[in-house]
């Protein structure tokens, strides 16, 4: 039942390195690590975790994000988002570098799309409220949102893939 956690123990330094890079500052890392292990333990009681390390990365992401937003993490994390156990690449750029890439990508969006995305992601407004504020249709708000998300994911994906290739070239 707790096999997933013992597997994680072996990869502790790898997980900690990941958390260090994902966190805004490193002083949070130990806390995030501890919370990640606790949540893994709880989840491993309910289900078998096929890819403990990949799963742990996702749990850590949720925890870091919740802390950044200063909201309490909803309980029951992991039940919906972790349907896919696919391992992700663990190459991650430094927080500052990622912020710069996101900033550039956000500035590359059309002003309307950027406004819609920020109202949703930062201000946590509903699609309906955004539609009313901007005078857009609900359908248009949805299109702007999904396209902004895709553009942001593509930007960071390209940057991190580039970083990975660079690392491989110069060992």
């Amino acid at each position: 039942m707790t096999d997933a956690v013992s597997v994680l123990k072996e990869h502790e330094s790898k997980l900690l390195a990941y958390i260090n890079r994902r966190c805004r500052n490193m002083s949070q890392s130990e806390d995030v690590m501890q919370e990640t292990l606790l949540r893994m333990l709880e989840q491993s009681r309910k289900t078998e975790i096929a890819q403990p390390l990949a799963y742990a990365y996702r749990v850590a992401d949720s925890i870091i994000f919740a802390q950044a937003r200063k909201v309490r993490l909803e309980t029951g994390i992991g039940d919906s988002d972790f349907e896919s156990e696919l391992p992700l690449a663990d190459e991650v750029l430094e927080h500052k570098q990622r912020e710069a890439i996101f900033r550039q990508a956000l500035e590359g969006l059309t002003p309307l799309r950027r406004t819609v995305f920020i109202k949703r992601h930062l201000e946590r407004k509903s699609r309906q409220a955004i539609a009313e504020e901007t005078g857009l249709s609900l359908e248009a708000v949805k299109k702007h949102l999904v396209r902004a998300m895709v553009q942001l994911a593509d930007a960071i994906g390209a940057a991190e893939a580039g970083d990975k290739n660079k690392k491989q070239v110069t060992p």
Partner: peptide, 10 residues
């Protein structure tokens, strides 16, 4: 979308 760096950028 869960990246705190994206929040900071926003």
């Amino acid at each position: 979308m869960l990246d705190s760096a994206l929040l900071d950028a926003c």
